[in-house]
Design a protein around this nucleic acid. Structure first.
Lengths: 223, 223
DNA sequence: CATTGTGAACTCATTCACAGCG
DNA sequence: CGCTGTGAATGAGTTCACAATG
């Protein structure tokens, strides 16, 4: 078993993974700019995180730095790729080819990072058989089980209206997809074996409006 | 000053606001189903949160429950609306009318909740003057300052490519927009007076792939 | 000698457990 | 009697501060 991928001893906080993803993205940008070395201090300031936090986050997975110098950008980036398991291609399916779904299918950012849509599903008869994006055909949701296995999908992306997202999630799980990225505004119920991440922009808007109201009425709590 | 909007005494954790938004959404659904009363226990199980957590979250803002009974759904929903400051219309502008931007403009969920797009901006000459959605005209980003004031925009939504999002954020701040919902995959730098929430789906995918790899190699850490 | 790596101290968040009350 | 509201106990995550070291 690949031991280096695992955390050293202590449990890795969930939020650490979140931050590793941010570090990774920053390193990609730095590498593109031709940089070679970065200190925890600078990486921290770029991601608006405490330098000790950066070092601790990395420390869960190994010793990647050079004392007195910093971190080599290329190698550190590769380590993060391995830790996050993004040093490979992931095949994804989309369910719900509406406004948002179509935009996700066309979104270049996914492809570049190795997240490839290979098939899409919808319940609208008008859309069945269409290719919103060349190469990605839309099937009826009834065929999820069948096609997901055919296309060897690992990640299901849900972009349906709220009222059917649970139904769709059940179909995906039935088809052995155990990783779901859920854009619908409801928390779906899944068995323990299935992983779900929610992308919930209405919640983000609510947080914004709450904070705006605090700015107006209250003393600002700065950070 | 509206005193009820403020927290009672202790500082409200950021995550509490996140959860309040989830409770609010759940209450909307329950109300639509004709329910009248809910216990912290049931609201908790629906949102996958601990019941004491639910009560504590609400407790920061007042006493909304009836001991021995639970919470009246309608009134509690109204309280949450006031706390989150979503009992009004918020005018938003979109910057970056690409795949994702267009989908956001068309997204019904925003409108229903009182988040109204009133104007959009892009740098592509082809798009200037178009109305992707009836009533919402696209202006050149150079006119952000001017039009934002004309339309009295309170929230700026950034859906541009990463390389221009900081530039666009600066323009919004210049135009006195101090609340930004950022869909671009970079953390933008803003002054203290400006609030930013990031919607970052690549990070969510990275978290998923990390967890999937843990499922395969490690012992599952369940929750 | 600048910067990493990390135990220890601290701060913040969650959960428990029960008093308070309708 | 049942469920809320909340102080107290626990747990998790962050930051400090400094020893270790290339």
């Amino acid at each position: 078993m690949e031991r280096l991928l695992m955390a050293k001893k202590k449990k890795v906080p969930k939020i650490t993974i979140n931050r590793l993803s941010l570090y990774y993205r920053q390193l990609e940008m730095l590498e593109a700019e031709g940089e070679n070395i970065i200190s925890s201090e600078r990486l921290a300031s770029m991601t608006q995180i405490n330098p000790a936090q950066v070092r601790k986050d990395l420390g869960y997975f190994g010793e990647f730095g050079i004392r007195g110098v910093g971190y080599e950008i290329g190698p550190l980036k590769e380590q993060l790729k391995r830790i996050l398991c993004v040093n490979r291609i992931w095949r994804m399916s989309l369910v719900g080819v509406g406004n948002l779904g179509s935009a996700l299918l066309r979104h270049q950012g996914f492809y570049i990072r190795g997240f490839h849509f290979v098939v899409a599903f919808d319940s609208d008869p008008e859309k069945i058989g269409m290719e919103v994006v060349p190469g990605i055909r839309i099937y009826h949701v009834d065929r999820i089980n069948e096609e997901i296995k055919k296309f060897d999908v690992q990640i299901g992306v849900i972009a349906t209206p709220a009222d059917v997202s649970q139904y769709v999630a059940d179909l995906l799980i039935e088809a052995d997809v155990n990783a779901i990225l859920n854009f619908s505004p409801v928390h779906i119920q899944v068995p323990d074996c299935c992983l779900v991440e929610n992308v919930d922009f209405t919640v983000k808007l609510d947080i914004l409006t709450y904070k705006v109201s605090q700015q107006i009425y209250g003393k600002r709590d700065r950070r």
